[in-house]
Structure formats: C-alpha cells, structure tokens
C-alpha cells in the first residue's frame, strides 16, 4: 500500500482517525462556543453569533462602561534611545547657563541646602522626566511648576544632560552611614515590594528611577507619603504608589533615613 492508498476513505484507519478527530473537534467546539457561553447566566448575548465571537476572543466594545474620571494628568514623557544620547559640550554648556536659576534651591554645584533633591550626577532620564511632568502638570509643586512651564523640550534635555554630567558630591550635611534596613535589602515580597535597589540603582536601574543616596531625608519621606496617599501620581503604571501604599510608616522612615545617610559615590556605576 502506498501513501496514495493511505489518504482515502476506503482505508479504515484513515476514515476512523479523521472521523474521530473531526467529531471530537465539532463536539468540543459546539460546547465551547455555544453551550457554555449561554450556560453563564450573568452574561447576556444578543444572539448565537455574538456568543461565538465572544468565546473566540474577538475584541468587542464593552457596552455602557463608564471610564473613570482622570482628574489629574498622567505622565506623557517619551524617551527614545536618541533623546539624551551623547550630549555635546555645547548642550551641557547651555544646560549650565539655564541651571543658574535652579541653583537657589538645588545648590550651585547641584547639592541642595534646602531639602530639595541633589541633582549633581543624577540620571539624565530622571531629570528629563520630572521636568516634563512638572511642565505638563502630571506632577505639581508650587515652586517647581512655574519654573518648568516655560522650558522648551531642548532646554529640558540640556538641563538633564548638564546635571547628569556633574560629579556626585557628598550631601551638604553628611550623617554617619546607617545599616541597611530590611525593607531596603529585601523589600517585602509578600506585600509585592521589591528591594529598592532593584530599580533605584544599587542592584539595577530602571529608566526613570533616580538613585537616592544622600538625598534629603525629609524630602524622601514626604515623597513616599505623597505616593502612598496618591497625592503624587506621575509614576508610570503606579509603580511607586503601589509600593509606598504597602509600606508601613516605620518602613518609610527607615528607608528615608538610610538613603539620606549614604554617600552618593556608592551608587553602582551602572550608567
């Protein structure tokens, strides 16, 4: 017998094999696409075709679902691989000039004396994102927002490159280094909290997350509380809000105090 004789209905194996397979397919398809959809009393279908489409996974417009209000804007920053790459000396120079107006709070060398963030040596993507968010209103601050509204895209990029270019200097009031609290080392996996360092630089850096070493304790505590209460909401996909909400107030304090006590030069050289 050759393969030609194999694929004919006079071959018993062919008939039985194909027949049983097709029968099972048809029966399961009827069950899966017609019977079971209608067996769910809590879902209504216009007709059989509607049920079949739903079971097949056709994307359908959900009926009368009201989208929740978005009272505040979300972050709209787009960063491509070219946005901040290889800044020219000129761009950094332009950034330095623009940075004169930031110096009153963030310090002439990018080190703040006023519980504002230290910007010297911060990741460029971080400064870029925050300035954009201040400008768009995704993040609001009485002092920063007015500065940001008038910046152009290019100015924001120049400022980011300038601050990223500055050396990471010690904080203005260095305190003795504290030991790592558990929340920083391990996070709290059972509450969905990853170790801080898995985004904030010491283990790995996820784009848009700042390194935190030597930042002001009061500032970091305030930001964690603002995330936890959803007062601040420019973190994409609620990455930081989900974490801050799950943290206890002691953990917030411990994390802020720990990071404030660290010298910035221990940030892993990942950039």
């Amino acid at each position: 017998m050759s393969t030609r004789d194999l694929f004919t209905f006079s071959n018993r194996h062919f008939t039985i094999g194909v027949g049983i397979t097709a029968a099972i397919l048809v029966v399961t398809a009827i069950a899966g696409f017609v019977v079971l959809p209608f067996a769910q009393p809590w879902v209504r279908f216009a007709n059989v075709w509607d049920a079949i489409c739903s079971a097949a996974g056709v994307a359908q417009r959900a009926a009368n679902v009201t989208t929740p209000d978005q009272p505040k804007r979300l972050s709209e920053v787009v960063l491509t691989s070219r946005t901040l790459s290889r800044p020219s000396q000129e761009a950094i120079g332009r950034g330095a000039t623009l940075a004169q107006r930031c110096a009153i709070c963030h310090g002439p060398t990018g080190i703040s004396r006023a519980d504002s963030p230290n910007l010297a040596g911060q990741y460029a993507a971080v400064i870029y994102k925050e300035l954009h968010d201040f400008r768009s209103g995704a993040r609001a601050n009485a002092v920063m927002s007015p500065f940001a509204v008038n910046l152009t895209d290019e100015e924001i990029a120049d400022l980011s490159n300038y601050y990223a270019y500055l050396p990471r200097l010690p904080a203005y009031h260095p305190t003795p280094q504290l030991p790592k609290p558990n929340i920083v080392i391990y996070g709290a996996p059972m509450r969905g909290i990853a170790p801080c360092g898995s985004c904030h630089g010491s283990l790995d850096n996820k784009t848009g997350s700042p390194w935190l070493e030597g930042q002001s304790e009061a500032y970091m505590k305030a930001q964690l509380q603002a995330f936890a209460s959803s007062e601040r909401r420019n973190d994409i996909s609620q990455q930081m809000r989900n974490i801050a909400r799950a943290m206890t107030s002691q953990e917030i304090e411990a994390a802020a105090a720990y990071y404030a006590s660290q010298p910035p030069d221990i940030v892993k050289a990942v950039d």
Partner: peptide, 14 residues
C-alpha cells in the same frame, strides 16, 4: 485575557 474562552475549552478537552 487575550485568548477566548471557547478556545480554552477546546484545548482543555483535547
């Protein structure tokens, strides 16, 4: 969520 329930059922039966 991107796979339809009907196909999940067929695959489950097979």
């Amino acid at each position: 969520p991107q796979v339809g329930a009907g196909f999940k059922f067929i695959h489950s039966a097979f």
